[in-house]
Amino acid sequence: MPSIFDILGPVMIGPSSSHTAGAAKLGYIARQLLGAEPKQAEITLYNSFARTYKGHGTDKAIVGGILGMKPDDEMLKNSLEIAKEKGLRYEFKLIMKAPKLHPNSARIKLFDLDGNKIEMVGSSLGGGRIEIVEIEGFKVSFSVAMHTIVIIADDIPGSIAHISGAIAEKNINIANMFVSREEKLANMIIEVDQDVPLEVLEKIRSFRWVHYVRLVEPIL
């Protein structure tokens, strides 16, 4: 059942909920996954995103999101200039036909000053709703409708128990958990009911077999 605020809203920067608002969200999520100030961005737009590109401000929206602007931030319009001021280098590649991907999809690769990088693929589904479909080569599927913890760790016995233990210790309720494996690494997407204190993330990070932990917060 829709909410009345699906009818009256969302409040957003135009012109398109899928090509502008959803695109800004994807950039914002990539920034959270990097977890630091991005210095370089390589963005690949696919299908309809590639075709309309500047026409719907998809480029400004994604770069704005990467700079930390939300879909209702009026600064999105000036994001390309702001990127220059802040020293964020960006480049766009366009791929017109990627039949396996949703019509509105983007691959975003971000680097910080220390050379850390993150790569993700996300799709804008319409009405500002989005789905993340790939992180660091792992196939995933989540919508950032809730606070989401993203983990990459060695695929060893007991890892899930340790991680869920660290979360449960602070009385945080796990709503959904998705695990996928590639060779010797495991990716975990954990959706929780509330905000996650830093100490929980620090505890997970302290496990020697954990390589990557980030919290992605929902964007209203």
């Binding site: 009256l8 809203g9 969302p10 409040v11 957003m12 920067i13 135009g14 012109p15 909920s17």
Partner: peptide, 21 residues
């Protein structure tokens, strides 16, 4: 026009029809 120029609007029910309400 605000919508087309990347200004802030409330979609009601959509961005494309956001002028009417």
């Amino acid at each position: 026009e605000v919508n087309a120029c990347m200004g802030r609007i409330a979609a009601a029910p959509t961005a494309g029809s956001s002028g009417i309400m």
